[in-house]
Structure formats: structure tokens, C-alpha cells
Design a protein around this nucleic acid. Structure first.
Length: 115
RNA sequence: AAAGAUUGUCGAGUGAUAGCUCUUUGAGUCUGUAAAGACUCUGGAGAGGAAAGUCCGGACACUCUCUCUGUCGAUAAGAUAGGGAAACGGUAGCGGGUAACCCCCGUCUAGAGUGAUCUACGAGGUGCGAGCAGAGACGUGUUUUAACCGCAAGGUAAACAAUUCUUGAUUUUUUCAAGAAUAGCUCCAUAGUAAUAUGGAGGUGAAACGGCUAAAUCCUUACUGUAGUGCAAGACCGUACCCCGCACCCAUUCCAAAAAAAGACCAUAUAAGUUUUAUUAAUCGUAAGACGAAGUUAUUUCGUUUACAAAGUAAUAAAAUCAAGAAGUCUUUGCCUGGAAUGGGUGCGGGGGGAGUCGCAAAGAUUUGUGUGGCAACAUACAAACAAGAUAGAUUAUCACUGUAAACAGAAUCCGGCUUACUGACAAUCUUUUAAU
RNA sequence: GUCCUUGUAGCUCAGUGGAUAGAGCGUUUGGUUGCGGUCCAAAAGGUCGUAGGUUCGACUCCUACCAAGGACA
């Protein structure tokens, strides 16, 4: 779990990222991002009710993604608003696959520091 | 010991690594005159029995019909407290519990089971396809078929005028007649708060004293609740930024020669804004192709292009609503510089904006234990216990072990119920059967 | 989160406890025409969302569940 400063916490920001941001997807994980004028990056998670109507499964999937992003976060370039959404219906994405998918996505979009 | 019945409890644990929210016991650093705030380390706490469905009931908050009475007020406007009515509901064998209930407890009646126990129902009226005979038709006899099935013949058409025995009439059944008994009916006694049960008596017993049904669509009665909206209720505050109006100051340009101060009119107007209506526009989205790109090669994803309904959004127009105050005019005082436009700044007023704070988070119809009252639900006394509180939303992720680690499932203002989903285990009480003493 | 609405033929919808559950559009067949449309005539197509219950009798009343949709900042 990231700190509250490092999370997207406002509806306006979500709308801005979805409307104006760039998108990339990989095996059900959709990454949208847009630069912000801040010294750190902020990350939000969206898992829709179409994924599963049960709140427990949605919570668990979100927590897996959050914990997978935690070791990657220090390597990210600062100054971006990022939204990660998962829509694969009723398929649980385990921790190992999630970290692999996320690193792939970040390298593809050049959001990660190569150092 | 086996087979059951009912009720209750629990709803994984341990370790390692990495992390989140709240809190502030302690320590430190920074900002600040101070109050205080921010950060780091440490300590403490952190998801249910159904948190679910949102099906009932309450607390709490705001809004609200008519009428009467009391208090404050001036007799008014209004505020506040209480009673009643209308309308709209709720409950329904009987008795009790509760803040309240479609809830719970006890009990009556009927049925199932050897039994523990389980299941079901519950006031009155109205109503009961039609005709004929008949004292009487929902129901005894008979006809018919409005309705349904069927090609047709024909059949279906809820329940209830009861049951048993003996004798006689006829060869028997059916039917008829006579008699007896039971149920039913009325009254009385006993038990019970009551529903009701038990016992006794009485006449009646082919004439209603009977059946089903409609408060899970009608009417009445009894008891009872004002009603509506739901914490996105509601209260406070209002940052950045934006819009409108007014005053003052500065700059530039133009104009005038009489101005300034106080009060009134101007002003039941009007700006932004809000609400409603109309028009237009673009976006989102949808659909089917075409082209291009990506790619996990899937009936994939993305972009461009073509077409398009409603709602919403934006702009414009109209109507309604809504602040402060200038110029101008008049009156009084009484005598020298002032006014307009554009741009910028400062201040004041009106409005939009959710950055936020509270409601709301440790404490009340609470939970547990013991005593007392009660068959019980529950009440009461004493003692002890009780820090989840987020707001794009914390309460976790990964690995290992524990017999295989597994079910249903995630708090969102808070409580009492009901309903639905569900893994495995344990405990208590009771019943029946078998065996031993 | 709180509060509501709806579910009937392929689509859009009616339906007052007793009808073989209807209407329009669509589909199919036949007729008309040289052919097609229009028109005319007929037919098919329904577990009334699912499961229980009340009732002599349920699309309609009650309860539970399922699905779809809406309002509120």
C-alpha cells in the first residue's frame, strides 16, 4: 500500500487522466498516464464491477496490484499521474504475474528509470 | 454404546520479509513571537455471523394538513408544549415481553412421529354458475350448462346437512320406516388471567344449531401508529481561482466652468448567479464497414474516417427570483475645481466554486458474570469489560509449517429483528433402543 | 452508501382474480402482379424472470431469490 500522498485521491484527477491521458494495455491490465507538475508520481487503481460483483474479489485484486507496484515505485520517473485498471472478467491475476506485467508495461511506456 | 431432537459457541493458528490507516505513551528534528503544526523512530488498536439482501421496526436530523388548549408575546405576527380529527397505514385465537415491530416467549386448537420434538392455521359480515319442485338451496331431490376438457358419447365442476348399531318392509344392494348410541347444540360446575379443557344435566337430534371463503384484492369492528424525506439527512466554514456591482487611488485621452457636505427620491428596478422553457453546438457513447498501428495470434486492443436517438454539458435568447450603492434630481447648510471613457491596482458588498471541519467513531434501549423476580421472553441490583472508523475509500501482500488450511463472504450514521448464503469442529440439555449393575 | 422502478411473442407495449393471455411492427405461407413493393387472407411464435405459498381457480394477491435500469454530491 502506498502512502496517501502517492495515491490519486480526487475525482477530477481521475477524469483528467482518463480523458487526456495516453493508454497502453497488456493481458487485461490497462495503464493510462499523464504528466503532472509535481515532484512525485501519483498512482490510482480502478477495478470495475464488471470484473466481479463481489466486493471481496475486487478488494483482493486491488491489493495484489498495490503490493506488486510497491517495489517498482522507487524506480519510476517522478511527475506522472498513473491509473492502473484491470478488467479481465473473473480471472485472478496472481502476484508474480502482476509484477511481471507491470514492469513490462512501465518499460514499454518509458516511465521507468533504466538505471 | 448406537440412533436421533433442540439450543448454543467458535468462524483458523504460528513464524519470517515487506507495507497501510487511526491514535499519541515516550523520544528527537524542523517551522513559528506564541498558540500550534509538520516529519522520523517507538508503543497501542485495526473486518462479520451473516458486515450481504434492504424486507420490517426504532434512534437521530430536516420538512409538514386542519382544529382546540396552555405558556411567552400586545389582543397581532410568531415561537414552544400537549390533546383531538381527517386522510393514510399496521396488527389479528389467547396472555405476556419490548424503545418499537410483519419480532420474541408462553399457551390453546388440528396434524405427523414410539418419543424428545416438529409442522400448519386462526375475529365478524358479505359471497358461494343458473333454473324447477319444495317449508327451506352455498349445502338433501332434480334439470341445465354459463365455464373447462373432449371429434362425439360423455366427463370435470371446492367443502358441508354427519357416523355407528339393531329391527322391520323387498331375495340381495340401494332405498324407506322405527328404535338406540356417539358427535354436534344449550345450560351449569370445576381448573385457568384468558383462549380453552374436563365433568354433569337438559331438551333437540331431518332441521340448521352446518361448511368453505375475502384484512396474501371487498365491507365492518377492536387495539394501535400524525405524516413525509433519509447522514449524499443536516450544521459550520469558505482556500486557490472565477463572475458581477460599487467606492477610492494611479496613468492616458477627452470635456465642462461653479463646487462640496448631510438627508430624501431614483430603487416593488437591475448585475452576476439560481430555476424553468426554447434554439444551436460540440463531446461522450453506440452501430456497421474501411484504413492504419500494437500484439498475448484471441470472435483482441487502440487510433482515424462515415452515420446517429434520448438524456446530460456548454453557449445564446426569454420569463421568474435576487444585494449594496453611485451618477442624476430635490431640500438644507453654504462657496472652489470637477466630470466622462479606457487600462491597472486596493478595499467593500453579492454570487459560484468542496480545500475542508462536524454529524462520526471509546460509553450506551451496549456486552459478560453473579444475585433476585418470572415457566420463559425479559426486568432489576451489583461487579467487571468495551480505543476499526476509511472518504478513489486503511484493516494487507508473499513464502513456510500446522492432518487437506479449505466455506459464505468486506464495516461506510448507529441499534433491534427477519430473510438468504455457508466450511469444519466442539459443548450442553433431552428422547428412544440395546447392554451391564 | 441511501432510496426507488421494471421484468408478458424476435422488438415496442396492453391486460379490473374466471378469455384458448392480446395489439402494432417483424417472420413464414398463400393470393393479387410479367417481377417486386403496397394490398388481401391465414399461420407459427409465450414455462407471463425463477421458486414457493393463499385461493375451487393466479399474468394479476403474498413471500423469497435472480436479472436489468434509474434518482440523490
Amino acid at each position: 500500500m502506498l502512502k496517501s500522498q502517492q495515491r490519486l485521491r480526487n475525482n477530477k484527477d481521475f477524469v483528467r487522466v482518463f480523458k487526456q491521458g495516453k493508454r497502453h494495455s497488456f493481458s487485461g491490465v490497462l495503464l493510462s498516464y499523464i504528466p503532472n507538475n509535481m515532484e512525485y508520481s501519483r498512482i490510482g487503481f480502478v477495478i470495475s464491477k464488471k470484473y466481479s460483483p463481489l466486493a471481496v474479489r475486487r478488494n483482493r485484486q486491488r491489493r495484489i496490484l498495490q503490493s506488486a507496484i510497491h517495489p517498482i515505485y522507487p524506480q519510476l520517473k517522478p511527475g506522472f499521474d498513473i491509473i492502473i485498471s484491470y478488467t479481465n472478467r473473473n480471472k485472478v491475476l496472481p502476484y508474480k504475474d502482476a509484477s511481471v506485467v507491470l514492469t513490462k508495461l512501465f518499460t514499454k511506456t518509458n516511465l521507468i528509470n533504466n538505471n
